[in-house]
Design a protein around this nucleic acid. Structure first.
Length: 877
RNA sequence: GGGGGAUUAGCUCAGUUGGGAGAGCGCUUGACUGGCAGUCAAGAGGUCAGGGGUUCAAGUCCCCUAUUCUCCA
């Protein structure tokens, strides 16, 4: 047995199954394409599901893959054990209704013993307890001795998930030798201890479980096998943990080199080293598949992995940003099998860097808050679970960090309470999810249809077609006919209607015959094979088999088409202006405008926007030719075509080429010369998520309308300001300045006015028990000037209580001020206002020296004036 | 999808039971000054995210919306 490297084993496996007439497929993206039930690809067969369920026809009946996978449920354990990892690769061979048990078992054995040269005496197998067929093959055909075939129950060796295809499994184990064993007499394959390691699982999908729980035999059973590449490598290299496998070890060593911490010295730091080693692999691959750190879904998984890695980096006292350096190592090691890593290297490193820096900000904020908490804590105090949880939940500050810092200050934290809060939070989320999970499965009807009907799309060249109605669907059921007033879905044999995809909205239009008129408001496609026209029956009756004329709204299509070609120009121009890290992250193209989301780490400057806009317009004005050609993926890539993250491309791809400027894969509709676009204008630029910007732009007729709108506004302004376009800015500037100056002047005059009238007010001052008091109505004043007047009066009159009021339509507002010496005598403005406003059915309050209040019953003002002396008297000490 | 925060001057942020919008930095002006963020003084700068409500009175309380951060799924 050779000590094969991980990369060698992968290649051997794929080659082996190629010799058995398997088609080698590239690893699918970690982002599931059509499976909404899955967050991330977590097994080798996950991306092939549609082939197993019959939804899609596989390109070949025998397939072999090496699939990148991510699993995070055990994230807390990773680093603490030898085997757990969030990222792993799964080798698999698959049969879609072709070969079955005999071949699957035979080839698995052949590969292990002849290609990998594993000694057969070390191999054990397990089977499902009732699967005698598998036993016969292992025992009779292969020659595995009776005692090395272990029968296991449903829990271990029967694969099923709810309803659907399922079946028994058979696993192959490797015996690492007695020294790893538990010593029990009945220790054998399947034992919990570390002696027997399972590395290959063969699933024989031979049943279909229905809703009543019956297992119905499948006419064409499938084979689905999975072999953990890391586990296999561990066996081949006699590694005691996955972290000692050649490729992974290189990453681990690099972590040690960066942190200057030796591996194997301290169990605590070892955990951190392993966590970083594992997590960075997940992070690098996730980013390369277009996932961005965020607050939900996959983005959140990514963020959590990345931040955990940073956190452990700090535990190793790495204090500068380091993750992207390790990511670079990952790329270097895995680029042969996953060329997308190298292709997007700059981008991947940039995104990781940004997120790591962002996390630093989060930590700083949390630290600030924690310090505040600590200031108000007694020595040896315990931080409440609420406070700790809030730090974690709201500010993203890790608990272990909270603990460490508290410890340094001699404090502790209520961890039990924290866990309780965490549980509550999880339950809240779970119950909320349950109530929203009940949709889906409605598309099933179309998946079945796609086996019998196909729609021919002719809309690239024509706007109308003579078609035949192949299916009519109403209320999610197939019907034979429909009539006026119904909302139905129609499938045609051929159609000019573009179905929504690649961001471009669907065509609208009409389907007509002498018997009926249908208005098409939307068009969607299923499996790229059937086009579903959503329509209202405007007139007449329609039935299957009718011939008809399908016509799209041409003006709409043309406007949309212009916007779509502009989107390509924008994409290229952004790359030119900002750099190669710019990747499309979403787009919407309709007849009104285009919306383009792309990865970029900061807002665009005005200059950048203008530069981008100008470049696009120059291509338009130079009237460059746009050509479309169909080719295969290989050739397209060689031509340098930009392809999108997560976008699925078939064997044949369309390449849209704008002269020598832009070249991009795209299934949308395009004009044949950029001149038709007329003109291009960016109307907004903003952020929609961390690291993702959104640009909205308009072209052609839409832009013309936009200009007219702006012109109208300008004319209105001109009319109001009585100026022409040339002077408008000057005039407006002048007016704004003039208004400010006038306001100032008014304020000054008001002050002067009240100053001059101050003497009048003073002449009305009365006195009781040594306290001078004044109550006066003030005209045409706001609260601000009331206060200023009050200030002045109070400063002028010693030992005083000032009460000023404004009469409004249905209320009176009071303001009261008391000077320092009067306060010493016991006068309290707040209490005073409370007393007098009570009389007039109002309320109020404030401080000793200043208070406000109001009444609703304005007739009570005289009564209030009368009682003032007695209130003052009662307050004097 | 669910929960918890945040949004106040150009920037970083204070703002007590609701009662007079603030600090530091930056900016402008002036004076002083051979020093590493020079010193001192004066000044400009605010739709307290937007909208609605409660109240005599809302930056502050309640509701909605937007943006953003964060946790959970």
């Amino acid at each position: 047995m050779d000590r094969l490297g991980l990369n060698q084993i992968r290649e051997l496996f794929l080659e082996f199954f190629e010799t058995k007439d398997h088609l080698r497929l590239k690893s699918a993206s970690l982002v599931p394409e059509e499976d909404k039930s899955l967050l991330l690809i977590n097994s080798g067969m996950a991306p092939l599901k549609p082939y197993f369920t019959g939804q899609k026809t596989p390109p070949h009946k025998r397939v072999t893959t090496c699939q990148k996978c991510i699993r995070t449920p055990d994230i807390e354990i990773v680093g603490k054990t030898d085997r757990h990892a969030t990222f792993f690769e799964m080798l698999g061979n698959f049969s879609f209704g072709d070969y079955f048990k005999v071949e699957a078992i035979k080839w698995a054995w052949e590969f292990c013993t002849e290609w990998l040269e594993l000694p057969s005496e070390r191999l054990w197998v397990t089977i499902y307890q009732d699967d005698d067929e598998a036993f016969e093959i292992w025992n009779k055909t292969i020659g595995v001795p009776n005692e090395k075939i272990v029968r296991l129950g449903k829990e271990d060796n029967f694969w099923e998930i709810g309803v659907g295809p399922c079946g028994p499994c058979s696993e192959i184990y490797y015996d690492r030798g007695e020294k790893y064993g538990c010593g029990n007499l009945d220790c054998k394959a399947g034992c919990e201890c570390d002696r027997y390691i399972e590395f290959w699982n063969l699933v024989f999908t031979q049943f279909d479980r229905d809703e009543e729980g019956n297992y119905n035999k499948l006419a064409h059973p499938n084979i689905d096998t999975g072999m953990g590449l890391e586990r296999m490598a561990a066996v081949m290299q006699e590694a005691s943990s996955i972290f000692e496998i050649d490729t992974i070890k290189r990453i681990l060593d690099y972590v040690c080199q960066l942190s200057k911490v030796r591996y194997g010295k301290d169990p605590k730091t070892d955990v951190s080293i392993r966590v970083i080693t594992d997590h960075i692999r997940s992070v690098t691959f996730m980013v390369s598949d277009g996932i961005l750190p965020g607050n939900e879904g996959r983005g959140y998984v990514l963020r959590r992995l990345l931040r955990r890695a940073v956190r452990h980096g700090r535990l190793l006292s790495i204090d500068n940003t380091f993750l992207s350096k390790i990511a670079k190592k990952v790329i270097e090691i895995s680029k042969e099998a996953y060329p997308e890593l190298k292709e997007r290297e700059d981008y991947i490193l940039k995104i990781i860097d940004i997120e790591e820096k962002r996390f630093e900000g989060t930590l700083e904020q949390g630290l600030h808050i924690l310090e505040k908490y600590m200031e108000s804590m007694e020595s040896n105090g315990v931080l409440s679970s609420e406070a700790a949880f809030k730090l974690y939940d709201t500010y993203g500050f890790p608990l272990d960090l909270t603990k460490d810092i508290l410890e340094e200050g001699g404090f502790t934290v209520d961890e039990k309470g924290f866990k309780k809060e965490m549980k509550l939070q999880q339950e809240r989320a779970r119950t909320a999810r349950k109530s929203s999970i009940e949709n889906g499965w409605k598309e099933e009807i179309y998946s079945r249809l796609s086996n019998t009907i196909k729609t021919d799309f002719i809309g690239y060249d024509s706007f109308a077609s003579n078609s035949i109605i192949k299916a009519v669907i109403a209320d999610n059921k197939l019907v034979k006919e429909a009539h006026k007033g119904m909302t139905i879905n129609i499938i045609l044999d051929k159609t000019p209607f573009y179905a929504e995809s690649g961001g471009q909205v669907s065509d609208t239009g009409f389907i007509k015959s002498k018997n009926f008129v249908l208005e098409v408001y939307d068009c969607q496609k299923v499996n790229d094979e059937i086009y579903i026209h959503k329509c209202n029956v405007v007139e007449g009756n329609i039935k299957i088999g009718d011939t008809c004329k399908a016509e799209i709204n041409i003006a709409n299509r043309m406007a949309t088409t212009k916007n779509h070609t502009s989107t390509h120009l924008l994409h290229k121009s952004l790359k030119n202006a900002l750099g190669n890290h710019v990747e499309q992250a979403g787009s919407l193209v309709n007849s009104d405008r285009l919306r383009f989301d792309f990865t970029h780490y900061e807002s665009l400057t005005k200059e950048e926007i203008m530069k981008v806009e100008k470049e696009v317009n120059e291509i338009i004005w130079k009237a460059r030719d746009v050509t479309v050609l169909e080719t295969d993926m290989e050739t397209a890539k060689k031509m340098g075509a930009m392809a999108l993250f997560g976008e699925k491309y078939g064997d044949k791809v369309r390449v849209i080429k704008v002269d020598n400027y832009s070249i991009e894969l795209c299934g949308g509709t395009h004009i044949n010369n950029t001149g038709h676009i007329g003109m291009f204008k960016i109307i907004s630029e903003n952020s929609i998520a961390a690291g993702v910007r959104r640009i909205e732009a308009i072209t052609g007729e839409g832009l013309y309308k936009y200009l007219i709108e702006k012109e109208n506004i300008l004319q209105e302004i001109n009319a109001i300001l009585k100026t022409g376009d040339d002077d408008i800015v000057k005039k407006l500037d002048f007016n704004v300045k003039a208004i400010k100056e006038l306001e100032k002047e008014v304020q000054q005059l008001k002050n002067q006015l009240s100053a001059s009238s101050i003497d009048d007010y003073i002449s009305n001052v009365k006195e009781i028990k040594g306290i001078k008091y004044l109550i006066a109505e003030v005209d045409n004043k706001d609260m601000e000037s009331l206060r200023q007047l009050g200030d002045k009066l109070r400063d002028k009159i010693k030992n005083s209580l000032i009460v000023l009021y404004i009469k409004e339509k249905d209320k009176i507002v009071f303001m009261s001020m008391v000077d320092k010496s009067a306060i010493e005598s016991g006068i309290h403005a707040g209490m005073f206002i409370k007393e007098i406003t009570k009389i007039g059915n109002g309320s109020g309050g404030g401080r000793k020296d200043m208070a406000q209040g109001g009444i609703k019953d304005i007739n009570k003002i005289n009564q209030i004036i009368e009682v003032i002396p007695s209130i003052i008297e009662s307050q004097i000490k």
